[in-house]
């Protein structure tokens, strides 16, 4: 019995010493709860690794989870659990911007900082939204890239994620707007959007029927990481490499072989690791009261410049990283292990 007691005391002592030794870091004692759209999604795993990197530097603890079925109520359940577990910051990538407002406000009423990253929670439910680039920039950059590949003429279609996906719908609306507004796209015949539901099989199948229906199609935009490889594989299987080019938002590791195989001249993605990293820094600063989300406020994050809070379209506040990385046949190899 004495032995056990001695061991316990020694452990307690060691732990308390450790806590003294690490007490210097800014995030010490803070817990961040990260909620993403879906468990087992490589993109969000990358995002979480950004949080992990920040955790090493700042010393906070974090938990992360997403529902199995990318549902609204699954996220609500996880957020409630995190509130009970006493997190200080919630970083949410929402499946539905409006659906989480209530539970987020409950969290804020308990003094928890609520940030949304990657996919916003509506303005009335969040403290700050952190996004890689403005929706317009993301949409227009993809359009310009594919239009250049197509020589500014020919048929173009979009293979999107789910029909209810808010990010994709926003980007697509900017793409459509730009197509109408800008003269240089006059000869591009826009066919419309098909939905692959972020599901490999469905994305593959809708692409196939798209190609069957419009054999002369020249360009595809795939603004979703889950759909990209499916569409690329389909173009390859149909023997249309060279005739049909795609672009979109994809992970490098998913697409490396296809990009080098000539299916795409370039695809894009911001770095979700950086996105997670910055979100963690903002969260810690806000929880410590060192930084307040207000128009014009700026924050210092190692390796980033000019991070400034600006008003967003939905009447809330937003912070852009404004870094979009192109993956081309030459550069993609360098990204494989990262994304």
């Amino acid at each position: 019995m004495k032995k056990v007691l001695a061991i316990v005391l020694a452990l307690v002592l060691a732990l308390s010493l450790m806590s003294i030794a690490t007490a210097e870091k800014a995030g010490d004692g803070l817990t961040i709860g990260i909620v993403y759209k879906q468990s087992g999604n490589a993109y969000f795993q990358a995002g979480v690794s950004g949080f992990a990197k920040a955790a090493e530097e700042l010393g906070f603890e974090f938990m992360h989870d997403g529902p199995e079925d990318s549902s609204n109520d699954g996220q609500e359940r996880i957020i409630r659990n995190y509130i009970d577990m006493g997190v200080d910051v919630l970083c949410i990538s929402a499946n539905d911007a409006a659906g989480l407002v209530d539970v987020c406000n409950e969290a804020r009423a308990k003094g928890i900082v609520v940030l949304s990253w990657d996919a916003k929670v509506d303005a009335e439910g969040r403290d700050l939204d952190i996004e890689p680039a403005s929706a317009k920039a993301i949409g227009v950059q993809q359009l310009e890239s594919i239009a250049e590949t197509m020589g500014y003429e020919g048929q173009l279609a979009i293979v999107s994620a789910g029909a209810t996906a808010p990010n994709q719908n926003l980007w697509i609306s900017f793409i459509e707007e730009e197509l109408k507004a800008n003269e240089k796209y006059a000869k591009v015949e826009y066919l419309g959007v098909v939905y692959g539901d972020d599901d490999y099989t469905k994305s593959y199948d809708v692409t196939k029927s798209l190609i069957d229906k419009y054999p002369d199609i020249k360009g595809l935009i795939v603004p979703t990481t889950n759909g990209g490889p499916a569409v690329a594989k389909c173009i390859m299987d149909e023997g249309k490499v060279g005739q049909i080019k795609m672009t979109g938002l994809t992970l490098a590791s998913d697409m490396a072989e296809y990009i080098k195989g000539g299916v795409a001249d370039a695809t894009f993605l911001w770095n979700p690791i950086e996105l997670g990293y910055v979100t963690a820094y903002v969260g810690v600063a806000m929880a410590n009261g060192e930084f307040e989300a207000a128009e014009g406020a700026t924050i210092e994050v190692p390796g980033f410049e000019g991070l400034e809070v600006i008003p967003s379209d939905d009447g809330g506040l937003i912070l852009y990283l404004n870094k979009l990385n192109p993956f081309t046949p030459e550069t993609v190899d360098a990204w494989i292990d990262i994304l």
């Binding site: 609204n72 109520d73 539905d96 409006a98 407002v101 209530d102 539970v103 789910g162």
Partner: peptide, 17 residues
């Protein structure tokens, strides 16, 4: 009750599973 739980919003993919 479900509609109440998701901030009084309705989506076509609600209550899957």
């Amino acid at each position: 009750f479900y509609v109440g739980s998701v901030s009084a919003t309705v989506r076509a993919d609600a209550m899957t599973g």
